[in-house]
Every structure is written in structure tokens, then in C-alpha cells.
Design a protein around this nucleic acid. Sequence first.
DNA 1: ATGTATGCAAACCATTTGCAATGAC
DNA 2: GTCATTGCAAATGGTTTGCATACAT
Lengths: 174, 174
Amino acid sequence: MDANLKLKNRVNEEFTEYLTTHKHRKTPERFAILDYIYSTKGHFDIDSLYKSMVEMNFRVSRATLYNTIDLLLDCGLVVKHQFGGNVSTYERSYGNENHNHLICTSCGEVWEMKNDDLLTPAQLKKIRRFTVNYYSMYIYGVCSKCAHAKRMELRRLEREESKEKVAAEPKKRR
Amino acid sequence: MDANLKLKNRVNEEFTEYLTTHKHRKTPERFAILDYIYSTKGHFDIDSLYKSMVEMNFRVSRATLYNTIDLLLDCGLVVKHQFGGNVSTYERSYGNENHNHLICTSCGEVWEMKNDDLLTPAQLKKIRRFTVNYYSMYIYGVCSKCAHAKRMELRRLEREESKEKVAAEPKKRR
DNA sequence: ATGTATGCAAACCATTTGCAATGAC
DNA sequence: GTCATTGCAAATGGTTTGCATACAT
């Protein structure tokens, strides 16, 4: 993964610069966390990040993870999502195209869908009093699996109802 | 507000139908909550809804609010947002156009921005294995107020740095 | 009459906070 | 040496859960 190494170097530099200008210390923890985040694509939450780092024998506390993530959010190297449920999920954002999220409101699953040209640069510039870092489209709906489960449930309810009717008015039926 | 009354009737009917087909009971609490939600536009969270209902002398428990909101989410009369922070915010969705959210990652404030034609119906149909109920664009960035605050902070840091340099190398300056 | 829905209080759990110890500067 | 940062453990607070009571069916 030569490309990924290059990417890591870039974000490392960016983070270093950010820490310097903001007078924050360059601790090994901070760079290790950045490295872990940019070792995977896709979404992660604090708990999974914590566990995977511990598993790889890097000791960090959750508190430090939260602190560092805050810095990474502030300098735009990570974005935060809250799709539902109570867990925040995060995603590295450097070198990631904007994309859409399909969120099933029934099971909470999230899918990604590429779509480069939702907003043109011209449209983004038109937004006044606001500096855009990142955008993504959240599309709420029901996935095919849950839709199927719901149909089954509805059918079950209907079946029960007709049974009740039969039981309630048996005389009419003869 | 004649139009609003009409809207309320519509959503009332929809909710009634939903409750009936799903064999849920039509309790006064549920309809009162729906009514409160459709009495205001814009975002709300459970706590503010709770307080406003109590203030208007309608006693509900938070538990019931959460339960009812779940039903309303399920039947698509309400959508849930999590912009950051730990509070879920909700929004009535019937008769609401899809719109964009500008989210300041610094102060957490959210603005709305109308944009009717982000996705065409044709584009939405192209999404396979997924039934779209609602979508909205989340645009993350920094609002002008926070941007200003950040600039000030950076300037302060720079000032301090130059002071330190002067203090550290006074001989060079003479 | 039956069992779902409510209200209350306790439990839960992701996130935040306080503080002593560490280590970047 | 100084003070920001870390790690731990306790606190916080939005949300969920358990259970006795109320009430829609």
C-alpha cells in the first residue's frame, strides 16, 4: 500500500502543522491514533478504535481517544456521524470523497453510495456566512430486509384479525 | 392557521390508520403528542417537548414521549436528526420539503437551507434495495461567528509566540 | 376481562470531567 | 522546571428498562 503510506504522510504533516500553530503538544498517542484511523477506510466508533488499538498492543485510554478525536475533528481530518442509536461514528475525511449515506431507520444499518456531483463548487460558494468543510447526504428509509420483515409482520396481524372476526361472528357464517 | 388545521387532520388520519393496522392502541397521549409536534415547525428535542407539554398542562412522562416518537418515526411522520452533541433532535416530516442542514462543527448550531432539487425522483428510484422516506443534506463547516473566534484565537497564539521569541533572543535584536 | 400503554424510578451506557502522575517543551 | 496531556475512576445525562397501575379494546 504505497498510496496509503503517502496519504499517511500527508495527514501526518497536516496534523503536525495544526498542533504547532495551535500550541498543542505532539504526543506519541496523538500520532498513533491518527495512524490507526488512516489504516482503515469506513466508519468506526470510539469503542472499536479503543479495542483494536489495545489488541495491537498500543495502550490508550478512552479519554485520550475522545480528546484526540476532538482535535482531528477541529482540523478537519476526521468527520463525525450520528446515524441513530447513541453511538457516534467517525470517518477519516482527508482524501475521502463526499458521499451519501443510506440509513435504514428500522435496523440502523448504514450503506454508502458514491455521488460526486451532488453539490457543485459554485453552489457551495453561494452559501453565505459559512465555510464548508465537508458534506454528506443522509437518505433515510427502509432496507429491503426490513421492508420484507415489516410485510411479514403486517400479514401476520391481518391473519390474526381475520381469525378474530371468524371467532366473533360464527353464526353469520352458516 | 387554517392550513395547519388541515395538516393536523391529515397526519391524525395517517397516524390512526397506522395504529389500527399495527394493532396499537389509540391513546389520548399519542394524539396529544402528535398534535404538539405539528403545532410547531422546526427542530425539537424530547426535553423541550416534555417541558412545553407540561407547561401547557398536559401531563406526559418522558418514557411515553420516547415510545410515541418511535411510532411516529416508524410511520414516517417524524424524522430524527443527530447533529452532534448527545441530544437527538426531531422534526415533523409530513408536508415538510427535504432540506439542507448547515452544521457548525465548532458551536453546534444548525441552520436550514431550502433546496428542493438536490435529488430528482428519477435518481431516488435508482437506489436499489432501499425505500426512501426522506433525505437531507448535512453540510459541515464553520459559521462566520466561530470562524471569527478562531481567527482571533490564532492571532493571540501568534502574538504570544512572537513575544516569546523576543524574550528568548534579545541579544540578536541589538 | 384482557393485556397494552402509561408513569415512575432505577438502570444503562456513551461521553465528560476531576485529579494525580507523566512526559513534551 | 513548567504545565499540557495522559489514564484512571467517578460523574453526568440522554435514553432505556422494569414493574405496578390505568385504561383502550
